[in-house]
Amino acid sequence: MTGAQTTDTVNTVLGPVPVAELGVVAVHEALLSVLPGAQYAFDITIDRAEVFRDLARKLTDYRESGGTTIVDSTGMFHGRDLPLYENLSRATGVHIIASTGQGPESMLGGYFLTPQTNPPTPWPADKFADLFTKEITDGMVIPRRERRAPAGLVVSAADPAGMTATEESLFRGAARTAAKTGVAVSIRYGADAIADLEVLLDEQLAADRIVVGGLDRRDAVEADLPRAVAERGAFVAIDHVGTDGGFITDAERVALVEELIASGYGDRILLSSNATGVAKGHPANDVPFGRLLTTFVPQLVAAGVGDDDVTRILVENPRALLAGAR
């Protein structure tokens, strides 16, 4: 199987890479993010040479800031460009892990909302699982053309107003894919992080194969959800470093990291910026990929977070998630 993964390797766009080579990992970022349908709009141009230059500059800056690996967590149909990512990885020396998966429902095309039944019903979880699993075992698809390297992560997201029936199918399909292939699941929760996590756990997927994103949302922190997720054994993604709107500030993120470490959950923390390298059809979250390392990590150190904890959060925890390494 193309995408078979062991605790010694992780799937990247250039093929399996030894875990020891991953180095510092940003687990929730977006390289080229295209709102579905925007590629057909008359007022939007996608100059791939220009996109390459912009992303190469940003990835080089990330590498020079100390980053080694970046995870494009956008899933299947939001601009993922595998030949572009392969060339970027070769040019910059940054390992790029691409993802499979879909969601939320509002971002799915009509084909994935119904199996054309009367009355319409959501795709069943097994159908999503087959779709995602093939992107790992057979390689990620370039629609109507070919398959390339295997995905290294399965992603999905729920509506902030609450998980829909289709999104529950997506989450269950993602969990079944993870259980079959060994590749981890990353979710962006909707209205209730614990309820959304429980959907995956109900599929008998081990909690340490799951990362819950968006846990630096202000409502999440006020409800003590990062601790609740960590208590269940899943990874806690504090993944909007550098962003304030609807999220806590970086100073509050530092305090959150300190609290989780003090509570014994230092091995559950993941950091990222949810930055967008190039966006088409929607505003970019224009935070440099390297800001996490050049600005936020020094804040952690200044607050008294030790080097061992910093290394654990940036290197060891992502390794444990992505490869199942212990």
Rank of each mutant, 00 (worst) to 15 (best):
T68C: 10
T68L: 04
T69P: 07
T69K: 03
T69E: 01
T69I: 00
I70N: 09
I70T: 11
I70W: 04
I70E: 02
V71K: 05
D72T: 02
D72I: 03
S73P: 07
S73M: 15
M76L: 15
M76R: 07
F77N: 02
F77E: 03
F77C: 08
F77D: 02
H78Q: 11
H78D: 03
G79P: 02
G79I: 06
D81M: 10
L82M: 09
L82V: 11
L82D: 02
P83L: 13
P83E: 15
P83R: 08
L84A: 10
L84I: 12
L84W: 04
Y85H: 12
E86R: 14
E86G: 09
S89A: 13
R90K: 14
R90P: 08
A91K: 11
A91I: 07
T92G: 09
T92M: 05
T92C: 10
G93Q: 06
V94F: 06
V94Y: 02
V94D: 03
H95W: 09
H95Q: 13
I97E: 03
A98T: 07
A98H: 04
A98W: 01
S99Y: 00
S99V: 06
T100R: 04
G101S: 05
G101R: 01
G101M: 03
G101V: 05
Q102F: 15
Q102R: 11
Q102P: 09
G103P: 03
G103R: 05
G103A: 14
G103L: 07
G103W: 01
P104A: 10
E105C: 06
E105H: 00
E105P: 03
S106M: 11
M107E: 12
M107L: 13
M107R: 04
M107W: 09
L108D: 00
L108E: 08
L108M: 14
G110R: 15
Y111T: 02
Y111P: 02
F112R: 01
F112E: 00
L113A: 03
L113P: 00
L113M: 12
T114Q: 08
P115K: 14
Q116K: 15
Q116W: 11
T117I: 01
T117N: 12
T117K: 14
T117D: 13
P119I: 02
P119T: 05
